[in-house]
Simulated scan of single mutants.
Amino acid sequence: MLGYVTGKERGEADAVLAEVAAQLRRDGVAVAGVVQLNEDFDPSRACHMDLHVLTGAEVVRISQNLGALSQGCRLDAAGLEQAVGLVAQALAAGPDLLIVNKFGKQEADGRGFRPLIGQAMAAGIPVLTAVNPGSQAAFDLFADGLAVRLTCSHDEILRFCNDQLKGRQCQ
Rank of each mutant, 00 (worst) to 15 (best):
L17D: 06
L2K: 10
P133W: 05
E19S: 11
L2E: 05
V100P: 10
M1K: 06
P126S: 07
P115D: 09
D14R: 07
Q169F: 03
V16M: 07
G33Q: 12
R10S: 09
G167M: 08
P133F: 07
Q89S: 11
A18V: 10
A137K: 12
A46T: 01
I157L: 12
N65V: 04
Y4F: 15
A18P: 08
D50K: 14
G11A: 13
V5H: 03
G134N: 10
C170P: 00
G11N: 15
G145V: 06
H48Y: 11
I117L: 15
R26K: 15
L66Q: 11
V127Y: 07
A21Q: 06
V29I: 14
Q169I: 04
Q89H: 06
L86R: 12
A122S: 12
G94V: 04
D96E: 14
L75M: 14
N38H: 02
L86K: 09
V53R: 10
V5I: 15
E19H: 02
A78V: 14
K102H: 10
T55P: 02
V148D: 00
T6F: 03
L116Q: 02
R10F: 00
L141Y: 08
L158D: 02
D76N: 15
L54G: 04
K102Y: 05
A123C: 01
R111D: 05
L51A: 08
I99L: 15
A93P: 01
G134R: 14
V35S: 06
E19L: 15
E107M: 05
G112L: 08
E9Y: 11
D144H: 15
V60Y: 06
R25I: 15
N38S: 13
N65G: 00
R159P: 05
G110S: 08
V127L: 08
L69H: 04
E9C: 05
G167H: 09
G72C: 00
M121T: 02
N132L: 15
D14T: 09
P43E: 01
S63V: 13
R45K: 13
A78G: 14
A57I: 03
D144T: 07
R45T: 04
P43W: 03
E12V: 10
L97P: 09
C161N: 00
L54Y: 09
A30R: 15
L150F: 02
A77M: 07
E156N: 01
K102L: 05
F142Q: 02
K166Y: 02
G134A: 14
R111P: 03
R25G: 01
S70V: 00
V31K: 12
E39D: 12
D42K: 12
L141V: 10
V53E: 10
L69G: 03
C47D: 06
A147L: 11
M49Y: 11
D96Q: 09
G134E: 01
E9V: 12
Q89Y: 00
A78D: 13
A83D: 04
D140F: 04
Y4L: 01
L150Q: 00
L75R: 14
A92V: 06
E58C: 06
